[in-house]
Design a protein around this nucleic acid. Structure first.
Lengths: 132, 132
DNA sequence: ATCAGTATTGCTAAGCGTTTGCAATTAGAT
DNA sequence: ATCTAATTGCAAACGCTTAGCAATACTGAT
């Protein structure tokens, strides 16, 4: 016996997932809304929000709580680091091994339990750097 | 010749700084507002917001852009890591050496310029763990 | 294939943290 | 003491996100 989710696959939900999987750009809810709207013009923004919420809650997609900015969403669930452009706000993946050892250090020093970590890099992206 | 700031030390600004220096708890704007209000009952919340903004812009204080949560403020400016309780939202310092080497790795892999990093730990704080 | 029941939708309005416009006040230089 | 721009308090606006609700449409059972 396990938790019954009773989820339905509506065309809205289906297309939201599909569109999110098409890109690697970590779109915000409203960016994804615009993408989905091309195929489903009558979808509402709250439907997009609600699905991103439920899908990330069940671990189907990843929600990036970017510091001091809009939430972003990612169809790639495996834990990885991100870098955010200080100029245009875009978020890219950084491919490197997760440094899990620091969690043990933090756990000892802080007395917290169940410690996890995330690293957010920031800088100037190639595009913004190019055009000064 | 250097940038002229033309800042004035109002009693509001003065007390905001003082109260922030009294604590190590990384208060949010409204928490600090309540603290300041005890000494300056007629201060407005926007004054607190405006001062926290200008003070952090000039580097007098540190603004913590906590992922997916309210901004928090810190009178300690030196770079250090934080840990956030997933249960009550409180934020504590984690005393450990900053791992600056990872910035070079991220710079090479991402092609971004002027890369900086921040690590946010999260977990369950001793208080929340104690009372289940 | 039809049905029933409830998860989900679209719409709108509300929520929350934060920022802004503006007239009144006040720090700080002369 | 006087001047002037920085700052304040208030209220209203803002941007992102969530919630209420009646209408719709999945899905599992018949």
């Amino acid at each position: 016996m396990h938790t019954q989710l009773n989820r339905r696959m509506t065309k809205q939900r289906h297309i939201i997932i599909e569109e999110l999987r098409k890109v690697t750009s970590h779109p915000t809810a409203d960016q994804l809304y615009e993408m989905v709207r091309k195929r489903l013009p009558r979808i509402s923004l709250s439907t997009v929000y609600r699905n991103l919420e439920t899908l990330s809650a069940e671990g189907m997609i990843l929600r990036l709580d970017v510091a001091g900015a809009q939430k972003r969403f990612d169809a790639t669930v495996e834990n990885h680091y991100h870098i955010r452009c200080n100029h245009c706000g875009r978020v890219d993946d950084v491919h490197m091994e997760p440094i899990n050892e620091i969690e043990e250090i933090a756990r000892r020093r802080s007395k917290y339990q169940s410690v996890s970590h995330s690293i957010e890099f920031s800088g100037i992206c190639p595009d913004c750097f190019g055009r000064g």
